[in-house]
Amino acid sequence: METWDKLNALHLDALKEIGNIGAGNAATALANMLGGRIQMTVPRAGVLPLQEIASLVGYEEEPVACVEFSVSGPAPSKIFFLLNEPSAFLLIDLLLGKPQGTTIELDEMGSSVLTEMGNILTGSFLNAFAGFCHLTFTPSVPAFAFDMLGAVLSAAFLEGGYFSDRALVIETRFYSEMVTISGHFFLIPENEALGKILQSLGLELD
């Protein structure tokens, strides 16, 4: 039995709540980068198996961008941020100050812009998370992929060490008056890390 199976409704609510706090902090970071006011909603959050995650995000062959980190510390985990192609291209245009619709394919510049943006967003997500849990999370340097959703998603679970085929998924929508950007944060704690995170919130696993 995996630790995920021991989670009850209270545990799940707590995880969703820290997901919300993390995403809120990421929205602030994005607003700073884009120099405007950015609102954020978390339409859905929950623990899902890998097989179901693809259909939550989109179609398996649809191109997506993903920035992935290994996180070391008392609760070793993996965290990654996934964007669909329209959102990824829109962000490149916004961050490079180009008119919307300029980017129609990914070049090296675009890849590094997205990697850096993912770095900042995930960093602020983790900071909020760490502050709330009173745990230290130290992210690795980012790894980047842009390809079919199914291929990128499964590789994010497998490359860099396999912990579990389930993840805490936080669907995040950033929007301003002008634009909407849809992304997903994924957190995969290593087996014992999930218990540590919950413990830090004053919850015990059976």
């Binding site: 993903c66 992935e68 290994s70 690795s140 340097v141 980012p142 790894a143 980047f144 992929a145 390809d147 291929a151 990128v152 590789a155 994010a156 490359e159 860099g160 060490g161």
Partner: peptide, 13 residues
Amino acid sequence: QMFTSVDRHLSFL
């Protein structure tokens, strides 16, 4: 190997 990174244990695994 889907992910690329400047410094990585990925290629090792």
